[in-house]
């Protein structure tokens, strides 16, 4: 089943089976292995990607359903080797340890803060309740998100 979508600004045409999730398609057909597959039933949040500006669980979406969509994965958050302000804040606050949940944390927060750069701590905590981390205890992740807001505010001010 031929499907075309835009991944991190690059047009991609793939031929996944109907049952292939967007997560598996991104990893195996597109070669973007930064998207992590954890629970495969929509609970852990590790596979979160941004589809048409909205954070979604890519294990709960079929690749064929993404036909024509604009997708941002963790590979598209920074600029090449250069880390984004959100990624730098994670580094500074030790917002990761093993790193398995990190792509989902970053994509979720990137979608949230792009839309709501003034999100308060309660809102950030509520949104991150959909992402499970077994290392950090979440506190450094919240701290990183709080600090990164400034960069998103500045970006919102430009446009």
């Amino acid at each position: 089943m031929t499907v075309s979508f835009d991944v991190n600004g690059r047009k991609v045409t793939v031929d996944p089976a109907a049952r292939t999730t967007l997560a598996d398609c991104l990893r195996h057909d597109v070669g973007m292995t930064g998207t992590h597959v954890g629970c495969e039933h929509g609970v852990c949040g590790a596979c979160t990607v941004i589809v048409n500006g909205e954070a979604v669980r890519s294990c709960l979406m079929l690749a064929v359903q993404a036909d024509g969509a604009k997708i941002t994965t963790i590979e598209g958050i920074g600029a090449g080797e250069e880390l984004s302000p959100l990624q730098l804040a994670f580094k500074k606050h030790h917002g990761l340890q093993c790193g398995f949940c990190t792509p989902g944390m970053l994509t979720t927060l990137h979608a949230l803060l792009s839309q709501e750069p003034d999100a308060d701590e309660e809102r950030i905590r509520d949104v991150l309740s959909g992402n499970i981390c077994r290392c950090t205890g979440y506190i450094p992740i919240i701290e990183a998100a709080m600090e990164a807001r400034e960069a998103y505010r500045a970006k919102a001010g430009e446009s």
Partner: peptide
């Protein structure tokens, strides 16, 4: 709606 699943799921 804030009680319905999580942020990412509410988008779909």
């Amino acid at each position: 709606m804030e009680h319905v699943a999580h942020y990412q799921i509410r988008n779909r």
